[in-house]
Design a binder for these strands. Structure first.
Lengths: 144, 144
DNA sequence: GAATAAATGAGAATTATTCTCATTTTTTAT
DNA sequence: ATAAAAAATGAGAATAATTCTCATTTATTC
């Protein structure tokens, strides 16, 4: 597993206990967590205000991705250098969020479309996000 | 312009003044509005609690699309029968949100990918959302 | 290791949204 | 058209998520 202290010093920010604990909690999970789930994992070890501050710190150094699930709860995940571009699949039954990669053909087609839209709307498009919504049919223990 | 009273009665819900005003405010704009912007447009005419209730009512009858902008503010737009499937483009300078349509080739490629992912994760995927982020370079009066 | 700078914890403040309930409006049935 | 019943509204209280404040603690620098 990656070294949380190393991650922090690589990004030239102070290495503190709350930051280490938050990064470790996020590293333990392969998939994104809601802030509530994260808070639970850290129970008592990091103050609520500190947790939010640390999340903002990690966003500032660009190693945290933040988005919302279909219930509008905030979801976070670590984004380390070697993670490649990915999207998310949400289960509306159990709330699970799965990281997905789209195939090359998809990303190529999307790039073409983005070029077209940039011209059409005179925009410079810098990023995109694709979210898929559905139900995990029998994969997960929460969904029957 | 569409008749807001008609829309409500077509969906078998009571035709009330706050609902009419909210629908009309949304009809006036082609692009989505944040709840704050909507509240401003309705200034004094609809109570805050009623506005939120009406938005929930419209969601229940499936004529309202709700999502969040990159600042996590709630954004809403009317979704009437003849509106076709579309996505959103966000300007990070002025906050404008533009409805966009993707070309057929894109949607075809996406469908193929979705089938692949359904098998891979044993999911039934029912919906998707694509969001593009960028800056409108000289289109808009707010962006220099 | 001392001085300086930065981060933390606890809880107050803020913001967005939902809830409560007495009153008003709309619908239904005559 | 009217009365009774049902549903929606307004005002503000309650709740939830997030940010802010500030005295204390912890990290960094030299």
């Amino acid at each position: 597993m990656k070294d949380s202290k190393q991650i922090l010093s690589d990004h030239k920010v102070s290495v503190t206990n709350p930051r280490i604990l938050v990064i470790e909690a996020l590293l333990e999970n392969n998939n994104p967590l809601t802030v509530d789930e994260l808070q639970l994992k850290l129970k008592n070890k990091v103050a609520k205000s500190t947790l939010y501050r640390v999340l903002n710190d990690l966003k500032k150094i660009n190693i945290l991705n933040e988005f919302t699930n279909p219930e509008n709860a905030t979801v976070v995940e670590l984004l380390l250098e070697d993670d490649s571009h990915h999207h998310h699949l949400f289960c509306s039954d159990c709330g699970e969020i799965i990281d997905i990669q789209m195939g090359d053909e998809f990303e190529r087609t999307l790039s073409k479309e983005i070029k077209r839209l940039e011209k059409k709307f005179n925009f410079s498009i810098e990023d995109h996000r694709l979210e898929l919504f559905g139900k995990c049919t029998d994969l997960c223990e929460n969904c029957s």
